[in-house]
Design a protein around this nucleic acid. Structure first.
Length: 266
DNA sequence: CGGATTTGACCAGCGC
DNA sequence: GCGCTGGTCAAATCCG
């Protein structure tokens, strides 16, 4: 029994080492993309300030979807989902049943936007919009409006059995989906490698003023997060770990724990 | 055959 | 008032 477990763990460790190599190269690639996006963003901010137009300042870029001027339906959240670029469907598996009622091509994005209503309860007010990221067609952006008045139908499928993988999300401050597990890991506690690292919540803030840049940053950050998740054991104990990486890692680990809890409950 | 999806038409809000 | 755009409707079509 113990020997079997030992063998299984060894196999798992081997697999993790292999994945680690692949993911590290991915991180490097993403990191360079992040730098590019950041410099692009800074350039735009500088440009707008020089022209005396404050409309693209950091403050306005950070303006979020919970703007009260948008009315009572400010219960809005965004979920970014990685798909294969070839995958043409606009389906985001999230545990709820949705009925599509429209599709439209919008001005700022060449990809069509699909409109969904919750099909699980006639009175449920939740709506969902799904559209591909203009810059990266492999990323789906699902925008949820409202809160469900009923529990989910079923759990989302395992990442390796589905063509879509949730990668990160953006939520209005104060908004939490009551049916979604939420865990915050604090790496500053109990022998953390780096006491200077503050605990950070899972949910990642993404600037809403410039959607394309925000989504690109978000997608890049979550790729790093995903890498961290799969390699958490390998990085455990690192005394000089990069704070940014560990922060992302904490979020990723929390997501995995939530997923594991679900599987154990069913 | 019934439910889900597609798609063109329609409507409302907004800026000029 | 007009045109543009995003959101919704509903008839046609598809699919199991």
């Amino acid at each position: 029994m113990i020997t079997t477990i030992h063998e299984a763990l060894k196999e798992e460790l081997k697999r993790l080492y292999k994945e680690n190599e692949e993911l590290q190269s991915k991180i490097e690639e993403i990191s360079s993309q992040c730098n590019m996006i950041e410099s692009h963003l800074r350039e735009r901010i500088m440009t707008s300030q020089d022209s005396g137009d404050g409309s693209t300042s950091l403050e306005s870029i950070g303006k979020n979807v919970s703007d009260p001027s948008r009315g009572a339906t400010n219960n809005v959240s965004r979920v970014f989902v990685r798909t294969t670029a070839e995958e043409s469907s606009l389906v985001v598996k999230d545990g709820y049943a949705w009925r599509k009622y429209g599709q439209k091509v919008t001005k700022d994005n060449p990809w069509p936007r699909a409109y969904y209503r919750c099909a699980m309860a006639p009175a449920c007010p939740v709506k969902k919009k799904v559209q591909r990221c203009a810059e990266d067609k492999s990323v789906l952006v699902a925008t949820y409006e409202g809160a469900h008045t009923h529990p989910p139908q079923s759990l989302p499928k395992e990442p390796n059995s589905s063509t879509t993988t949730p990668i990160t999300e953006y939520n209005c401050p104060g908004y939490m989906d009551p049916f979604r597990p939420s865990i915050t890991l604090d790496l500053t506690l109990n022998g953390s490698p780096n006491p200077a690292i503050p605990a950070r919540p899972i949910r990642t803030m993404v600037p809403d003023g410039d959607t394309s840049i925000g989504m690109a940053i978000s997608a890049a950050m979550t790729n790093v997060t995903t890498a961290g998740t799969r390699n958490q054991e390998l990085y455990k104990g690192l005394s000089n770990a990069d704070p940014t990486f560990l922060s992302a890692l904490s979020a990723a680990v929390a997501q995995n724990v939530a997923s594991l809890q679900h599987r154990m409950n069913y």
